[in-house]
């Protein structure tokens, strides 16, 4: 029963994650990301982490995705299509800058990936007291302690990564040509 639920949740998570990237309509992307988070929460629940599951839904599902949806709806990205991409944009031409950016992105991404994998393997040791939790809620003090003492550096590094992503999105979105001057038709 639990195995079956896990496979269903995992399948839904993967499919919706693919849907986030492939969907043309940004709102559909947001909705599939939301269901991805939902199925992740189910997986957490099956693993015994009630608290994490609730936080996943509360923070990601309830707060962050609503903001995403808000922004997507306000910007009205529905009409954007790939042919409109402006190839004159300096970001596409300045090879050195874009290569540098790519390198930084890959470095940060792989660093965080390695960090996550190693951290997960480390935490999976029974002596570290996180997995398997007998009671989902009882593991919470252990989780908090691990996050705020021993692993505070990776924790902060992850937030720096998120900040870098936010700034990058801002830079990409604030390209001049995408906002025509008021009262002037776009040619």
């Amino acid at each position: 029963m639990v195995d079956l639920l896990f496979y269903v949740a995992a399948l839904v998570a993967v499919l919706t994650a693919v849907g986030v990237v492939l969907a043309r309509n940004p709102v559909v992307s947001v909705v599939s990301l939301l269901s991805c988070f939902g199925s992740l929460a189910v997986i957490y629940l099956l693993a015994g982490f009630q608290f994490l599951a609730a936080i996943q839904i509360l923070v990601y599902g309830g707060a962050i995705m609503v903001l995403f949806l808000f922004v997507v709806m306000l910007l009205n990205l529905g009409g954007l299509n790939p042919e409109d991409e402006d190839r004159d944009d300096p970001l596409f031409h300045d090879r050195r800058r874009s290569a540098g950016g790519l390198a930084v992105a890959v470095a940060l991404g792989s660093a965080s990936l390695i960090g996550i994998l190693r951290g997960a393997r480390h935490l999976a040791e029974p002596t570290n007291g996180l997995v398997p939790p007998e009671e989902g809620f009882d593991a919470l003090p252990a989780l908090a302690e691990a996050m705020f003492t021993r692993y505070s550096l990776p924790f902060e590094a992850a937030s720096v990564l998120l900040l870098a992503t936010t700034v990058g999105v801002m830079v990409l979105a604030k390209r001049q040509r995408s906002i025509p001057p008021a009262g002037e038709e776009r040619s």
């Binding site: 939301l34 936080i55 839904i57 509360l58 599902g61 309830g62 609503v66 949806l69």
Partner: peptide, 8 residues
């Protein structure tokens, strides 16, 4: 958490 989803 679940109540917050109803906004969707």
């Amino acid at each position: 958490a679940i109540g917050g989803l109803s906004v969707y």
